[in-house]
Computed example of a mutant assay.
Amino acid sequence: MSDLKKLKLAAEGLKILYVEDNKALRENAAKLLKKFFKHVDTAEDGAIGLELYKKNQYQIVLTDIKMPNMDGMELAKHIKDINPKTKVIVMSAFDNSEYLYSSIELGVYRYLKKPVNIKELTDVLESCVH
Results as ranks from 00 to 15, higher is better:
residue 73 M to K: 06
residue 20 E to D: 14
residue 85 K to T: 13
residue 63 T to E: 09
residue 33 L to M: 02
residue 113 K to Q: 14
residue 76 A to R: 08
residue 127 S to M: 07
residue 64 D to Q: 00
residue 57 Q to G: 02
residue 28 N to T: 10
residue 84 P to W: 04
residue 5 K to H: 07
residue 118 I to R: 13
residue 116 V to C: 11
residue 19 V to I: 14
residue 26 R to W: 00
residue 50 L to D: 02
residue 111 Y to P: 04
residue 123 D to A: 13
residue 116 V to D: 09
residue 5 K to M: 12
residue 3 D to R: 02
residue 81 D to V: 00
residue 57 Q to M: 12
residue 21 D to P: 09
residue 96 N to S: 14
residue 21 D to H: 12
residue 48 I to P: 00
residue 90 V to P: 10
residue 49 G to F: 09
residue 75 L to T: 09
residue 113 K to T: 13
residue 39 H to I: 10
residue 5 K to D: 14
residue 34 K to N: 15
residue 8 K to Q: 15
residue 70 M to K: 15
residue 47 A to P: 00
residue 12 E to W: 04
residue 63 T to I: 11
residue 87 K to D: 11
residue 102 S to A: 12
residue 46 G to N: 07
residue 118 I to V: 14
residue 79 I to G: 04
residue 3 D to P: 00
residue 10 A to T: 03
residue 12 E to H: 14
residue 104 I to P: 00
residue 111 Y to I: 01
residue 54 K to Q: 13
residue 41 D to A: 09
residue 99 Y to L: 09
residue 98 E to P: 00
residue 114 K to E: 07
residue 53 Y to L: 11
residue 74 E to G: 02
residue 59 Q to R: 14
residue 121 L to P: 11
residue 118 I to L: 11
residue 38 K to Q: 13
residue 21 D to L: 07
residue 81 D to Q: 10
residue 13 G to A: 01
residue 32 L to S: 04
residue 62 L to F: 13
residue 80 K to H: 05
residue 90 V to Y: 04
residue 16 I to R: 05
residue 23 K to F: 09
residue 126 E to I: 09
residue 55 K to D: 12
residue 36 F to M: 05
residue 109 Y to Q: 02
residue 48 I to Q: 06
residue 32 L to H: 05
residue 27 E to P: 03
residue 41 D to S: 11
residue 73 M to P: 06
residue 93 A to P: 05
residue 24 A to W: 03
residue 88 V to T: 05
residue 126 E to R: 15
residue 113 K to S: 12
residue 77 K to M: 08
residue 31 K to E: 15
residue 33 L to G: 02
residue 62 L to V: 06
residue 116 V to P: 10
residue 39 H to N: 14
residue 119 K to Q: 14
residue 118 I to E: 14
residue 87 K to T: 03
residue 112 L to F: 08
residue 123 D to C: 01
residue 87 K to Y: 08
residue 118 I to Y: 06
residue 35 K to M: 15
residue 35 K to I: 12
residue 36 F to I: 05
residue 89 I to G: 11
residue 47 A to R: 11
residue 15 K to T: 13
residue 9 L to K: 15
residue 55 K to Q: 15
residue 117 N to Q: 01
residue 79 I to A: 06
residue 85 K to E: 15
residue 42 T to M: 03
residue 56 N to L: 04
residue 71 D to K: 08
residue 76 A to G: 11
residue 5 K to F: 09
residue 96 N to L: 10
residue 4 L to M: 10
residue 52 L to E: 10
residue 105 E to M: 08
residue 118 I to P: 01
residue 39 H to S: 12
residue 94 F to D: 07
residue 18 Y to E: 11
residue 88 V to L: 03
residue 30 A to I: 03
residue 76 A to L: 08
residue 85 K to Q: 14
residue 96 N to P: 05
residue 81 D to M: 06
residue 13 G to V: 01
residue 73 M to W: 01
residue 67 M to A: 08
residue 121 L to E: 10
residue 94 F to S: 04
residue 36 F to D: 04
residue 78 H to L: 10
residue 24 A to V: 13
residue 65 I to F: 06
residue 31 K to A: 13
residue 47 A to K: 14
residue 112 L to T: 05
residue 1 M to P: 09
residue 124 V to S: 10
residue 34 K to C: 10
residue 98 E to K: 11
residue 52 L to W: 00
residue 72 G to H: 07
residue 50 L to T: 04
residue 61 V to W: 02
residue 106 L to V: 03
residue 40 V to L: 02
